[in-house]
């Protein structure tokens, strides 16, 4: 074990953290939007949208992310139609291809988490709200969503961690995030162990912070549980 090399690789690898955070942050943001739309279309849409959304979720949950990334990056670029479209401004860049793949992936998983959470809102609460004379949108905004979001937080926390890990696959399409930089250092130093152990520790730290943040959000959202304790 070459400790000096390990120590020297720390600042270089840390330079990949912003890219990793951007990938994860943007994918989670867009993914939440996708998940919200998909969950609503599945629960309240007509049969066609329901089927379509179910198919999307099925495909993206049933295939490895690596296949999705390669298909979006290398596969789409093959078509003149895609290359001459406006979308190419974004799809030309590996960064946006990675964002797209991660977004669609997390969108599919999160929509299932959200759907389950919405379905788990107790019927009694909805009835009570209706009895108070709430409109459908008000009921959804004030009762269903807050309860559902609180309900889904633990599962969503796992999804966030999965995304942090998944972002490492962006290195396979030339992006220089933490893993990409790690591979670059290894290409010059050939020290696989040292570099990947440092890189792994950085991911571990990121995930630790992420899980703490989610737990804090959970704590903030459940004041009624605290009062009892």
């Amino acid at each position: 074990m070459n400790w000096e090399l390990m120590w020297d690789s720390v600042p270089t690898l840390l330079r990949g953290v912003p890219v990793t955070l951007q990938l994860v942050g943007l994918a989670l943001l867009f993914g939440a939007g996708v998940a919200f739309a998909v969950a609503l279309l599945r629960l309240y849409g007509n049969r066609v949208t329901e089927r379509l959304m179910a198919a999307y979720v099925f495909v993206f949950r049933g295939t490895p992310l690596l296949v999705q990334i390669f298909l979006i990056y290398y596969g789409m670029g093959q078509f003149e139609l895609v290359r001459s479209s406006v979308l190419w401004i974004y799809l030309r860049e590996p960064f946006w291809c990675a964002i797209l793949a991660l977004t669609l992936n997390t969108g599919a998983y999160t929509s299932e988490i959200l759907r389950g959470a919405i379905l788990s809102v107790p019927q009694g609460q909805i009835e009570a709200a209706r009895a108070c004379g709430m409109s459908r949108t008000l009921l959804f905004r004030r009762i269903v969503m807050p309860v559902a979001i609180r309900q889904m937080l633990p599962a969503y926390g796992n999804e966030v961690i999965l995304m942090v890990k998944a972002s490492s696959l962006a290195s396979t399409i030339t992006l220089l995030e933490i893993t990409g930089i790690a591979r670059k250092i290894i290409a010059q130093s050939f020290a696989v162990f040292e570099v990947f152990i440092v890189a792994g520790s950085i991911y571990l730290l990121l995930n630790f912070v992420a899980s703490r943040l989610i737990r804090y959000a959970e704590w903030r959202m459940t004041p009624y549980l605290r009062a009892r304790g």
Binding site: Y74, G77, Q78, R83, R92, P94
Partner: peptide, 8 residues
């Protein structure tokens, strides 16, 4: 090579 054909 694939990426050059795609124009990246």
């Amino acid at each position: 090579g694939i990426d050059m054909a795609a124009g990246r």
